[in-house]
Amino acid sequence: MSKLYLVTNSDKYSEEEFLQRIEAALRGGVDILQLREKDRPDRQILDLGKKIKNLCDAYHVPMLIDDKVHLAWALGCGVHVGKEDMPVELCRKLLGPDAIIGATAKSVEAAKESKNQGASYLGVGAIFETKTHVKTKRTSVETLSTIKKEITIPVYAIGGLNIDNVDILKNSGADGICVVRAIMDADDVYKASKELKERIENIL
Rank of each mutant, 00 (worst) to 15 (best):
K53T: 04
V61H: 02
L144D: 02
E129M: 10
A105W: 12
V124S: 03
Y190N: 01
E37G: 12
G173M: 08
I101K: 10
K131S: 14
C91T: 07
V79G: 03
G123F: 04
L4Q: 04
I100W: 14
I203C: 06
L169Q: 12
G160Q: 03
H133I: 00
V124M: 02
A186H: 07
E201W: 14
R92F: 13
L196Q: 08
V81I: 08
R43Q: 05
P62D: 02
T143L: 04
I127Y: 11
S14K: 08
G118S: 10
K131F: 11
L26F: 11
E129F: 15
G78A: 07
L161Y: 09
I100H: 11
K149V: 05
H60R: 07
S10T: 05
I151L: 01
I153S: 03
A119C: 13
Q20C: 07
I153T: 12
D185H: 13
G125E: 00
S172L: 03
L90R: 10
G29S: 01
G29T: 03
G29M: 00
D167Q: 12
K194R: 13
S114I: 01
E89Q: 07
L144V: 09
R181H: 15
Q117K: 15
W73Y: 14
S140C: 11
I22C: 13
D187H: 13
G160H: 09
E109G: 01
S14P: 10
D31H: 14
C178L: 01
P154N: 07
M1H: 15
G102F: 15
D39P: 02
E150L: 09
G123I: 01
L4D: 03
G49F: 09
R21L: 00
L95I: 02
W73V: 00
P154H: 14
T139W: 04
D164I: 02
L204K: 09
V108T: 09
A110L: 06
V189N: 05
D39W: 11
I52L: 02
K194W: 06
L6I: 08
T139A: 09
I32N: 01
D188M: 05
V79E: 01
Y156S: 00
T152K: 14
G176L: 02
L204M: 14
L4E: 06
I158P: 04
N202D: 08
R40E: 01
G125N: 05
A157L: 06
S2H: 15
R43C: 00
A105S: 14
N116W: 10
C56T: 15
G82E: 01
V124I: 12
K170I: 06
E37P: 11
I147R: 04
S114A: 15
L204P: 10
L26Y: 11
I52V: 15
G125W: 08
K112W: 03
A99L: 04
Q117H: 14
D185G: 02
C178Q: 02
D67A: 12
D31Q: 04
K194L: 03
K51V: 05
G176S: 07
I158F: 08
L75V: 12
R43I: 08
I32R: 07
K148R: 15
D175L: 03
G49I: 06
S145I: 07
G29K: 00
D188H: 15
L46Q: 05
N165V: 07
E89Y: 15
D175M: 04
T143P: 09
S107M: 03
A105R: 06
F18W: 03
H133P: 10
T136F: 13
L94N: 06
E17A: 09
K50H: 11
K135Q: 14
I163Y: 12
S114H: 15
K148I: 10
L204T: 13
L161S: 06
